[in-house]
Design a protein around this nucleic acid. Structure first.
Length: 515
RNA sequence: CGGGGCGUGGCGCAGCUCGGUAGCGCGCCUGCUUUGGGAGCAGGAGGUCCCGGGUUCAAAUCCCGGCGCCCCGACCA
């Protein structure tokens, strides 16, 4: 059985609880309650940024590193990332992709080969100029993304249309020198997945771009319970070097948008820059058409900001490193033996059914303290097992999202799995409801500005397509066009006029202030 | 880079105006009693007061100069 290091004696295997109607943790000393100051959480409504940081610290997801802008991902945070990786990796494999690994260091000259690309990334790169005690002949950049090195290699590997498509993915770290950083959301170094594909036709490459956008969306909804809007970005917002960028945009609890995943149709831009040509069936030479796409550890930040509350993290069951915490309760040694025996049986049954369970049998820690700890860490379900429960062949099942009820031991696996599934569904439904509650359609210029200066949210409005209008709105409201929404998200009737200039609307756009 | 805040045991802070033994809460260690929503008592460990100069008999405290971190804004996944 898996155990956790206890702060007192015992081992820990855990379970969460409903965040009952008890008040949130209070300041030390108040109400006779005490808690470690480092675990104190600023109320979300008081200061969202502080709340976000506090949740991360409380749940032990990450910590600051000695280097500005960098973060340490702690085991509990990394476990969430690993679950994300597992789900996404399986989806990539199902759609025919293979993993590979390209190096961290890229010749500086490579970046310069694609004009927009270098313009976009040069200011953000870290450059290595010395190695082995000597000045390097050509500086090496720490990859801010890997298009350049990958196309340099593809031009070696691809000769014929028979070599296409190439469907690659890599899990890697990258470095982008950011002015301002935030845990998970924007750090100097971050972990991500970058897919790179090369195709014989433009159509096929764009189909691939959209396929992956759909994969991302499905992952965000089904695993993260975070429902994004999807659609293309405007020219101003697209990836440096792409022909078109598509994105998933999710709405956080402070009503700011988070770009959660992007998928780019690159046309032949990189193929031309790196001379990645192939021979067609009829003997001609053509450049490959390509796509690239990525999601990063930023998703962990999105997960936190989508669901969590003033008690701490709320983690959707499918991505919860610990789905169930079992907390035994006893008074005497005799009770302890019986209760532990029952708790271990429950834990074993759940584990055998594929549930991630922790049994928290740490000695000398009161049950209430354990509840708070697991709640802070976002564990979706807690099972409490005390002498009374043993006698009645039951356990108390408490949900992180609220509610506590007895469950018969005989049906524990079904009850727990049912609860996990319900919590997963409820979180998605709640997030979708919140998104719609904070979306306004057919906004006027005044409404848009008012919304952005106030409550925030997604503002749907008409857009003539001109960069001037896009810039005008941004200057007036600090909101950017997050996406030109895909059909299923569009308004009916479609907006008739541009929010900014009042001319005929060619498109519908969704504005929001964004991370 | 601009604006704000902050650097004192692991964490959160007080002390600084008015220089003179470095304190409090939580956490940690030991023991006993506890355990159905953050346990109690007793004992104990733990600090280059961010760094460097200066003033002074004496600096966490006063002066000068650095550095670092966090938050807010301009750039970005």
């Amino acid at each position: 059985m898996r155990t956790w290091p206890g702060r007192r004696a015992g081992r820990v295997r855990e379970a969460p609880t409903g965040r009952r109607e008890c008040p949130p943790p209070t300041e030390s000393g108040q109400d006779g309650l005490r808690m470690n100051d480092e675990l104190r959480i600023t109320p979300r409504s008081a200061d969202f940024a502080a709340w976000y940081n506090d949740v991360i610290m409380r749940a032990q997801l990450a910590d600051y590193s000695p280097v500005r802008g960098c973060m340490v991902i702690r085991p509990h945070g990394y476990a969430i990332w690993e679950l994300m990786q597992g789900a996404l990796d399986a989806m990539f494999k199902e759609t025919g992709h293979q993993n590979a690994y390209f190096p961290l260091l890229i010749p500086q000259g490579f970046l310069a080969k694609e004009a927009e690309h270098v313009e976009g990334f040069a200011p953000q790169t870290a450059v290595v100029t010395r190695g082995g005690g000597k000045e390097l002949e050509e500086p090496l950049v720490v990859r801010p993304t890997s298009e350049t090195i990958i196309y340099a290699m593809l031009s070696k590997w691809v000769q014929s249309y028979r070599d296409l498509p190439v469907l690659l993915n890599q899990w890697a770290n990258i470095v982008r020198w950011e002015m301002r950083t935030r845990l998970f959301l924007r750090t100097t170094e971050f972990l991500w997945q970058e897919g790179h594909t090369a195709h014989a036709t433009s159509h096929e490459a764009e189909e691939e771009t959209l396929l992956i956008l759909g994969v991302y969306r499905r992952f965000m909804e089904e695993w993260m319970a975070m429902p994004p809007l999807t659609g293309p970005k405007t020219e101003a917002e697209k990836f440096a070097g792409a022909v078109r960028t598509y994105a998933c945009e999710a709405l956080m609890q402070d009503n700011k948008a988070l770009q959660a995943g992007t998928s780019h149709f690159l046309g032949q831009n990189f193929a031309k820059a790196f001379d990645t040509q192939y021979q067609t069936a009829d003997g001609a030479l053509d450049y490959v058409w390509s796509s690239s796409w990525g999601v990063s550890t930023r998703l962990v930040g999105g997960l936190i900001m989508t669901h969590s509350d003033d008690v701490g993290l709320i983690c959707p069951p499918r991505l919860a490193p610990i789905q169930v915490a079992v907390v035994p309760i006893w008074r005497s040694d005799a009770e302890k033996a019986a209760v532990l025996d029952s708790a271990e049986q429950l834990a074993r049954a759940l584990r055998e059914a594929g549930t991630r369970v922790a049994l928290d049998d740490r000695d000398g820690m009161k049950p209430g303290a354990k509840y708070y700890e697991w709640e802070g860490k976002g564990v979706p379900v807690r099972l409490e097992v005390g002498p009374r429960d043993v006698k009645q062949q039951q356990a108390m099942l408490a949900r992180r999202t609220g509610g506590k009820a007895p469950v018969a031991v005989a049906g524990i696996v079904e009850a727990v799995q049912g609860a996990l599934a319900e919590i997963q569904d409820d979180l998605l439904a709640a997030a979708r409801q919140r998104r719609e509650d904070h979306s306004i359609r057919g906004v006027t210029k005044e409404q848009l500005i008012e919304l952005m200066e106030g409550a925030g949210g997604f503002a749907y409005g008409g857009y003539c397509g001109s960069p001037e209008c896009e810039a005008g709105v941004q200057q007036a409201s600090k909101a950017t066009i997050r996406v030109l929404p895909d059909e299923e998200f569009r308004s009916d009737p479609a907006p008739a006029t541009c929010v900014w200039c009042g001319k005929r609307a060619e498109l519908e756009a969704v504005w929001a202030r964004a991370y």
